[in-house]
Structures are given as structure tokens and as C-alpha cells.
């Protein structure tokens, strides 16, 4: 049995859905953050799989760009979470309810 590009795409879709579900269900900012990383990495998997299948290099280049962006986002996101954690000793997003209306 050969592994075709479809397998990769199905795996990527599954990872993306798991990430999306994680963001929606989990309430800990760190776990939400990890779920978002999962979504971004499923994008990478799609890019690389498709790029290999089509025999084009652009998709792999795009995957590198996505990695760089994801790394930058991690830096910013963790800084924000640390700032909040110092205040409340908790990373639960449901407790963030100062702003409403």
C-alpha cells in the first residue's frame, strides 16, 4: 500500500480540527496556545505534502515562512501570558472578565 498525498492531507485536516477544537474547548491560555501551534503546523504539513506531490519548491518555502511567523507569535504570546500570570497566578481565560458590556 503506497502512501499518497491524500493521506497527508487527511492527517493535516485531522490535526487542524484537533487544534481548532482545543482552542474552543480548553480554557487554559497555554493549552489554547499549543492548540493554535497545532493548527499552524497542520498548515505546514499541507504545504510540504502538496509541494512534494506537485514537484514544486514554493510550498516548502511557504512552510519555512509559516515556521518563522509561528516562532514570532510564540515569543509575543508567551510574553503576554507571563504578564498575565504575574498578576493572577493563573492562566485561565475565563477569569479574564474585567472587560465586558
Amino acid at each position: 500500500m503506497t502512501v499518497t498525498v491524500t493521506w497527508y492531507l487527511v492527517l493535516a485536516a485531522a490535526l487542524f480540527s484537533m487544534g481548532a477544537a482545543g482552542v474552543l474547548i480548553r480554557r487554559n491560555a497555554l493549552i489554547m496556545f499549543m492548540s493554535i501551534e497545532l493548527m499552524l503546523n497542520s498548515v505546514n504539513l499541507t504545504f510540504v505534502a502538496v509541494s512534494k506531490h506537485l514537484g514544486l519548491i514554493e510550498g516548502q518555502v511557504a512552510a519555512l515562512f509559516v515556521m518563522v511567523i509561528a516562532a514570532a507569535e510564540v515569543t509575543v504570546g508567551l510574553a503576554i501570558i507571563v504578564a498575565i500570570f504575574r498578576f493572577r497566578s493563573s492562566a485561565n481565560v475565563d477569569e479574564l472578565s474585567e472587560l465586558r458590556g
Binding site: I36, M39, L40, T46, F47, S51, H53, G59, A62
Partner: peptide, 14 residues
Amino acid sequence: ALALTLFGVSLLYG
């Protein structure tokens, strides 16, 4: 939003 857009872009690229 970024992840959603990128997933769409990767499918479009495919």
C-alpha cells in the same frame, strides 16, 4: 484568524 487563513491558502496552493 492567521491559522484559518493559512489553512485556506495551503489548500488553494494544493
